[in-house]
Write a protein that binds this DNA or RNA. Sequence first.
DNA 1: CTTTGGCACTCTGGACGGCAGAGTGCTAAT
DNA 2: ATTAGCACTCTGCCGTCCAGAGTGCCAAAG
Lengths: 344, 344
Amino acid sequence: MAKQFELNERERAVLAVLIDHYIRTAEPVGSRVIATKFNLGVSPATVRNTLADLEDRGLIEQPHTSAGRVPTEVGYRLYVDHLLKSERLSKNDREKIKRLLTVDYGAVEDVLDQTARVLAQVSSQLGVTVLPKFENAILTKIDLVPVTDTKMMVIIAVKSGFVRTLLVEVEAQVDQNSLSDTVQILNEKVCGLSLGEIRNTIRERLHGVSNGEPQLLKLFIDQKETILDDTSSPTIHTEGTSNIISQKEFQDPEKLREFISLLEERKSLVHLLKGSSLPDGISVTIGTESNIGGLRDLSAVIKTYKIGQTHGSIGIIGPTRMEYAKLISVVDYTAKVLSEILSR
Amino acid sequence: MAKQFELNERERAVLAVLIDHYIRTAEPVGSRVIATKFNLGVSPATVRNTLADLEDRGLIEQPHTSAGRVPTEVGYRLYVDHLLKSERLSKNDREKIKRLLTVDYGAVEDVLDQTARVLAQVSSQLGVTVLPKFENAILTKIDLVPVTDTKMMVIIAVKSGFVRTLLVEVEAQVDQNSLSDTVQILNEKVCGLSLGEIRNTIRERLHGVSNGEPQLLKLFIDQKETILDDTSSPTIHTEGTSNIISQKEFQDPEKLREFISLLEERKSLVHLLKGSSLPDGISVTIGTESNIGGLRDLSAVIKTYKIGQTHGSIGIIGPTRMEYAKLISVVDYTAKVLSEILSR
DNA sequence: CTTTGGCACTCTGGACGGCAGAGTGCTAAT
DNA sequence: ATTAGCACTCTGCCGTCCAGAGTGCCAAAG
């Protein structure tokens, strides 16, 4: 560990107290408050010395001469990595999460929608969920439904209950019989494989097939990227925007606008959530670490959930000044419950 | 028409000029500005008299003694209903709308998503679109896909390319053969009917059917509300939130929060758009006319579009101080183009 | 009777100065 | 190494002041 992070006992304690207090009040914290809150009898003057040290190491800073100190991003990082005493979620919250998530749902999308809502509600921050990648999902059934003379709907159902539908242009008229022949052939050839596998091998698998409508089979081969890739579909759910926009860090209307744009644009957020997916742990991204402009003063707590062979991510976004201990346990527990629900 | 709306030539002109100017500047308008902008040579003093009259009738008001005048809701109403010279959309905008909407799409939802984006972009306000009611949509095909031991996916495809999918709980194991029998029976019995008709008559239609899995048929009868009603699914698309939150009327953070909540909650908005659907005209809802708290200082311009036998609505939401003439023609033209695209 | 110039009046918003409060850094004493 | 004391600095708030904008009314002019 770099030298700047080698803190002695008092420095650790002071930094922890400072951040805890700042998280609660959103006001710069002075030496007096720390000295009185910090039970080991030590005077404000002593604390001031410690504060000066911490500032030298870049862990805290002063908004201006003679205000209290405020944690820097580096400070938060150290706090999250080494100072945080992980906190068990209250029974109340655990039950609430479980109860709200355990409802009848009509589609997997609905569960993730609901999950975002639950995250937002329990955390009073922004809840975010993304659908899993289709890449590794196992195809259960493929179906074709004629819609108009020139358009046909492709329905792709994969294990665990996802369905994707899309319209494709077809050249020729196809009668009912050869249509169902084609559907049967397709199902025989590709069911039970992952979408990724299908994409890579469909040409070979359909090669030399004699029955079924050749036009349609050709269509599948030609448009395999469009049909079997999910980059186009909307995969993110956010909930609780109103929770966080009233917070201090959005007082500047320009920042607010930038953030709302970010939410609407979706792409960067999806990228953030999908990108920071450690295999099984929780990932905390603080402020500019995300390299996303609109998240300058915000942090994200992210964890993956499992569904069948594949996985997606959920998370909470809020001001860097967030209750990390609590939010980490919220995300952790929610991801666990979600994985359970989806694997039934 | 009520007496308060019987305006003479000058009063009409003054009100029109005042509103035009206020829309542009967002500042209270004084007599001097009106007098100079208003070409017929007449002095500020005269205008002041007219303004006093208009104020007596409740069409305009002063934020405080000795500020200029600002239109009231009633004033806007009169302006929209009687003073507005309808404006043909610029060729530029028409082409832009047509071009942006005429793209390949993989689902009807995508078109409406894109439409909301186009509305937002051309108007610099909030674009809103809602999916049509399924009630009158004609069923093209119904399909069943087993997902897990106890869950089955119902796929409902209706004319014009919509698909709805939902998961239902099934009691018994169903083998492949009786499943496809059941699907065939269902399709024979209900294809070509509207979802509403099906909901009302499915019991009779399936009565006395001998082949097919009786458990499944029973399920359809018992759960017809869930399966055939669309109130649960997300039917609204909004785009361009960042366009309007930086405007003057959202300076008060509490108002902003209320508005964002409104957008997230969706329900009131859907209700507003579906509710104000005149058969073929444009509907303009000004401020509190909507009876929705979060829209206190906002107006909505709404029009329906057609798709097959049914219809949905699109609209623009922005400050009451909006360019009604332009936005009306934007919504009008966009709805027309959208109907064309969807009927292909 | 309508229009207009003139004028006194009112209200806002920004600039300015003064001041209490909070917090610091440094020094000297313990 | 810790602490008390102290001088110093910066913010945020409050009251005052003033220019600017706009009005309403009155009396004169058309």
